[in-house]
Amino acid sequence: MRSLFYILSALAVMGLAFWAYRENYRTQQALAEAERLNGDIGAMREELNVLKAEWAYLNRPERLRELAELNFDRLGLLPLRPDQFGLIEQVAYPLPEMPAVTRVVDVVGLLEEERE
């Protein structure tokens, strides 16, 4: 009986060791993947910052003014002036559409019923 218990214990220990070995490699693989993804995210953030800087450089008011003047004959663009800009409160937003009235309601009849 003791020998059976020793054999089962040894098999359980070997099974747990095999499981721990596999989990160790899975964990290392997951950590490597997470590190790779963090590196990709960092590279993409850096690229985004470069693109934002390029966009800001290309949208300089003096550059846009020069382009408008150079291409006035072809495009008819007027140069930018400070008085052309407004506040957000000055923007006229469209009103929401009102639903169409499809049913007629007799208001006079309802008022007379309430009085009674």
Rank of each mutant, 00 (worst) to 15 (best):
S3A: 10
L4C: 09
F5H: 06
Y6L: 13
Y6M: 08
L8A: 14
L8F: 13
S9I: 11
S9V: 11
A10E: 11
A12G: 10
A12R: 04
V13M: 07
M14N: 06
W19M: 04
W19E: 05
Y21S: 05
R22K: 13
R22D: 06
E23I: 07
N24L: 12
N24E: 14
N24Y: 13
Y25K: 09
R26F: 00
R26E: 00
A30F: 03
E33P: 00
R36I: 09
R36A: 15
N38Q: 15
D40W: 04
I41A: 07
G42T: 11
A43S: 15
A43C: 06
A43V: 11
M44N: 13
M44C: 09
R45Q: 14
E46Y: 01
E46P: 00
E47D: 15
L51T: 10
L51K: 14
E54T: 09
W55K: 03
A56V: 04
Y57H: 10
L58R: 08
N59E: 05
R60W: 05
P61E: 10
E66Q: 09
N71L: 04
L78D: 11
P79W: 03
P79C: 09
R81L: 11
G86S: 14
L87M: 09
Q90Y: 01
Y93D: 07
P94E: 02
P94V: 03
L95T: 10
L95P: 00
P96C: 01
E97K: 15
P99F: 01
V101E: 15
V104F: 13
V105H: 06
V107N: 02
L110Y: 03
E112A: 07
E113M: 09
